[in-house]
Simulated assay, not measured.
Amino acid sequence: MANEEMSMSELLNNYDVKRLNKGDILKGKVIDVNDKEVSVNINYAFDGLISKEELSVDEKDPREVVNKDDEIDVYVLSPNDGEGYVELSLIRARQIKEKEELVKYFKDQKNISVKIKEETKGGVIAYYGNVRIFIPGSLVSRERIELSTLIGRELDVKITELDFRNNKVVASRRIIEEEEYNKNKKVVWDSLVEGEKKNGVVKKLVKFGAFVDIGGLEGLIHISDLSWERVNKPEDVVKEGDKVEVFIGKVDKKNERLSLILKDVNKEPWTVHSSDIKVGDILEGKVVRLTSFGAFVELFDGIEGLVHITEITDDHIAKSSDVLELNQKVKVKVLNFNKEDKRISLSIKEAVETNNEYLNYVDNADNAGTSLGDLLKGFKFE
């Protein structure tokens, strides 16, 4: 036994190396690689051995991780594995270096590139080399995203918590996206010109309209600006995810509020149809709204006029719904037309009187036999 110990001592002296201790970091050269392990020359009495599990966190085939003659840093797990080899770890050697890098990146608040490995409760697990990093779901992105779609992807993130003692490394992708958004926001706001066309994507529908992203900036299309026609709810016109072409409306840089318009400003009904409306004209329209003071009649898409309750009939009525119904077609006479204020005053009873006069004229002229019912087809009085 003494001779064996002496032999070992002499052998170590011949190699002129110090005794190894667990935790030492050594430089070595790959001697051989197979599908289960890697043998390494570490300039010691015995060669080192790295198991597949100690080569990479995802347990790749060793031949995908290192090649023969590669020079690598290794971590001593055990100076003697009982079979004449030094048990080594490539993962731990790299982790030490990677942890040193992470400390510097955290201190300098620099971005790092990580690979998403799996989804877990509350977020995703990523790796910076061989160091495990947790990214909470709320910090994955500034937008809603399915966490499962990130698996296998590489992302730039920023470390928010670093505690190696408790194996806690937390990172955020959202911080980077917020920084990029805020950086570009001023440029985008300064580029906005009222009336200019922009391509966008509908992000969210609300009761009063739709929010649209026009390239890093969201604006609101009020329900009244979705269409020239009357819109009861936004989903009648657009859906979330729709690609739309919008016009820039009001731009409030101070309060960062942007209004958008979906309806084509070049097809504004009052401009398109103003020449078709003249005081005294008899036109056909559709009842679109009934109120206590009268009824609104749509003459053209996007153009409505008011028939005051006193202009519906000579008979006394308490409310417009006593004689009119929604979507009922009626003939009306234009009493007043103000294009600038976009107001039209209409009369149903005068349209009736005018048609009565015309009927008398026809009867007296050629006894054509046209009835009042034919002329006022569509009226409904009770």
Rank of each mutant, 00 (worst) to 15 (best):
K107Q: 06
N255F: 07
N41V: 06
N336E: 12
V86A: 12
N67C: 05
I125P: 13
P62H: 08
D35I: 00
L162K: 05
K168Y: 00
G302V: 06
L290H: 02
K110H: 03
E143V: 04
G369E: 08
D108C: 04
A368W: 09
K99Q: 12
K121I: 02
A2L: 12
N3G: 10
V288F: 03
L220M: 08
H222L: 05
I116G: 05
R94K: 09
V334P: 08
D61Q: 06
I133M: 09
V66W: 04
R132V: 05
E229N: 03
I221P: 02
V265A: 02
D276H: 03
N355M: 15
N367Q: 15
V66C: 06
I42S: 12
K253W: 05
E240L: 02
E53Y: 04
V231N: 01
I282D: 05
V332I: 04
N14A: 14
V272C: 01
I96Y: 13
L220C: 06
V140K: 10
V86W: 13
I303W: 12
K29S: 14
L155V: 03
K183E: 07
D363C: 09
F296S: 09
N355E: 14
I344K: 04
D16A: 13
E180W: 00
F300R: 03
L299K: 08
E382T: 11
G122Y: 04
V17S: 15
K239Y: 00
N167R: 04
R132A: 12
Y127Q: 12
D252S: 08
E118F: 06
N255A: 13
K250S: 14
M6C: 11
A210P: 03
F379S: 13
V193M: 11
E229Y: 00
D363T: 11
S89C: 10
Y15Q: 14
V279E: 12
W270F: 09
S347H: 04
I248Q: 14
K342R: 14
S227H: 00
L359T: 11
K349R: 11
D24H: 14
G122A: 06
V38A: 09
E64S: 11
R173C: 03
S274Q: 03
V362Q: 12
K243I: 02
E218T: 05
L326R: 12
K104C: 02
V231A: 00
V140G: 10
E83W: 13
T291M: 03
Q109P: 00
A210K: 01
E268T: 00
V297I: 14
V362N: 10
K168H: 04
V272E: 01
R132G: 11
E350A: 09
N167S: 08
F208R: 06
E54I: 02
E161W: 01
K68V: 07
R132Q: 15
N3W: 07
V131G: 09
E304W: 05
K121L: 02
I248E: 13
G369S: 10
K233W: 00
K319H: 10
I277V: 08
N360T: 05
Y358H: 10
N21M: 14
N199F: 12
L90C: 07
D363Q: 15
V201K: 15
K68R: 11
Y127K: 08
K36G: 04
N34W: 04
V74E: 12
